[in-house]
Amino acid sequence: MDTVQRADPQLYDFKPYRARPKIVWPGGKQIAVWVAPNLEYYELDPPANPNRKSWTRPHPDVVGFSHRDHSNRVSHWRMAEVMTKYGFPGSVSLSVALCQHHPEVVADANRRGWEFFSHGIYNTRYTYGMDEAQERAIIEDSIRTVREATGQTIRGWLAPALTHTTRTLDLLAEYGLHYTCDLYHDDQPQPVKVKSGRLISIPYSLEVNDHYGFFVYNMSPRDYADALIRQYQRLASEGEQSGTVMCIPLHAYLIGQPHRIGPFAEVLKHIAADGRAWIARAGEIADHYYDHHYQEAVHGA
């Protein structure tokens, strides 16, 4: 890749948020809402990647590890019960090695009818520095592991710890995956330019991700709940012109803490009662988009 290509790897076309083709979600809904719990496994003593350190402290990083381990011992079930209560299935960003380490967590999510996409093997193994064969290996491992553990074929990808190479998206399309959650340029699904096959971006979110809410913006639990409701109200209202997507990306060890889960439950209750939302899985949103809007977006009406 030369300097110009590196400066903009040409992932998608520029399309302003104005006069767009009208998206209408199933049932005439104005906003597709999906919840993305990250079900992760972080290794206590992972090998070093030359481009990024796993833990800030010498191993064992007791706070870093045990905080995240809370998900798999306590808070996954607390979060999942609240989602089930208000009718929100999860679309799981899965460290696929969790299928080996804690199959009980994966089975619980599967029983609830949640969809799985890959978030890499571990959230402590990064894609930076991989060659093509290594990237293919983690994609193939992901497909195989999730299929064996859940019977599902993964359709999407969120890079492990958001670490990419410039060939990742092409490879995902080549392997027949349908969506990526790694691009944050829009509030609607968008075609992604790939070398072969097709791929779309589905809006995930950094900004209303619970990690950003609590550790970047330092919000209180009630402030975070308020931010989610504002995000929802605005996108639902704009969705009258053309349907929008709101994702709520979660980590059980954050949202499932006892001081946070109550205010969060109120958010789901609010959205479920509003009437404008199509509460869906990522794959359903992708299907609807491919079936009704992809052609027009790529080739024009």
């Binding site: 990647n49 030359p50 306590v74 380490h101």
Partner: peptide
């Protein structure tokens, strides 16, 4: 350029933790 092959080897990818300090269970 590639990472060391060992970066894609997972010696402790097994049921339970990748350490032996304590055992897994769900509080529920």
């Amino acid at each position: 350029m590639a990472l060391e092959p060992s970066y894609l080897e997972y010696a402790k990818r097994r049921e339970g933790y990748d350490h032996d300090l304590y055992e897994w269970s769900s509080i529920f």
